[in-house]
Design a protein around this nucleic acid. Sequence first.
DNA 1: GTTCGACGATAACATTTGTTATCAAATGCA
DNA 2: TGCATTTGATAACAAATGTTATCGTCGAAC
Lengths: 203, 203
Amino acid sequence: MQSKAFCNNFTNAPMFEHLKNKFPIEDQKWERYINCFNKLEVPSKTVLLNEGEISERIFFIEKGCVRCWFNRDGKDLTLQFFLEGGMVASIESFRKKIPSPVTIETIEPSVLWYVDKKDMDSILTELIEIPEIREKFIDILFERTFDYMKHFVSFIKDSPEQRYQNILKEKPQLIQRIPQHYIASYLGITSVHLSRIKNKMLK
Amino acid sequence: MQSKAFCNNFTNAPMFEHLKNKFPIEDQKWERYINCFNKLEVPSKTVLLNEGEISERIFFIEKGCVRCWFNRDGKDLTLQFFLEGGMVASIESFRKKIPSPVTIETIEPSVLWYVDKKDMDSILTELIEIPEIREKFIDILFERTFDYMKHFVSFIKDSPEQRYQNILKEKPQLIQRIPQHYIASYLGITSVHLSRIKNKMLK
DNA sequence: GTTCGACGATAACATTTGTTATCAAATGCA
DNA sequence: TGCATTTGATAACAAATGTTATCGTCGAAC
């Protein structure tokens, strides 16, 4: 009884509307899967995974913002941001059970749902047999890879100023919501230099 | 008759020993697949795919060395090198039938085998149904992604000098075989700067 | 053998970017 | 409200890296 109420509660969350649209799977299966999702409401600066730990959970973001970063000689280097609708884990650590190269941390008060690795593995094992879903997963994998490549290529072909303008054009929500020193770290420059760039762009 | 001789000829190539070890598939299937491979012997500086073209072939390297690069304001930016045993295509272009962001070019006289996209697609469609092979493909996909991430992370966390030393340690064959200005372009610096780095390291 | 082009080293100078320090404004919290 | 912390701007100086030009060597093509 309690489990059923639990389940209905989850089913109504916006997160699942989003997922159900993305993965059209029979309702019956969804009910089973939804029991593997755990809600987490956390304040800003909550660490979801520490650099060096092994990733045991994958997080789905219903509300808020998450940052992946690592430490290098005391400096804070940002690899990625995730917003509403995003799915985040240290995928290398999650897949290969090796220590995570990155820390995953909220930068806004956030509403998250997580799935434990063992649950996620069994869901995936089941779903991968369905050709349409399999195709979708492979697509997602490719898209992730292409995204990394794109970000990487932008590092070697564009100046920091151009990279900033790319973000302004393609992901303006990031500029609006994320503190500037994190943006600078994401662009691979110091916050002082980003200040200079913004100043120069005004003139 | 001719087709059979052709096939036997191919079967003996070192390339296929390598592939057969990597993908243990029944001999019968291999015979069919091997007919889709076409041998290509080319001199240095042969363009296999031009920036802007749509990738229609995937190349397997039996002997030689291949470079992926693109042009930015007349400058030559290198993304990757491939040596013997490597498999190269503009994967984004190959998968999505979009113009390739990179040029693919030999930098040594090379012996290659290529497979046309339509053949590769049908081979993959067949093989993806075999769970072990499917797992292997997904592994390969992940590994590619992790490689890109690693290379990318090294760009944001290491100095050019450290990146050069990483290559010296991890891929010394590249330093030995590849002209220095291509190495510089791969490291994201000018050849002048790489000269300075080497000079500094001597002292 | 001669010539031409590719490759690599080096120097002088220019530009970009980082470092450190200081201050002002905004924000969260008691 | 008021204080502490975070965030962002700016200046002065230092270090890293690019640009351009010159020169020497080596190997391939004629």
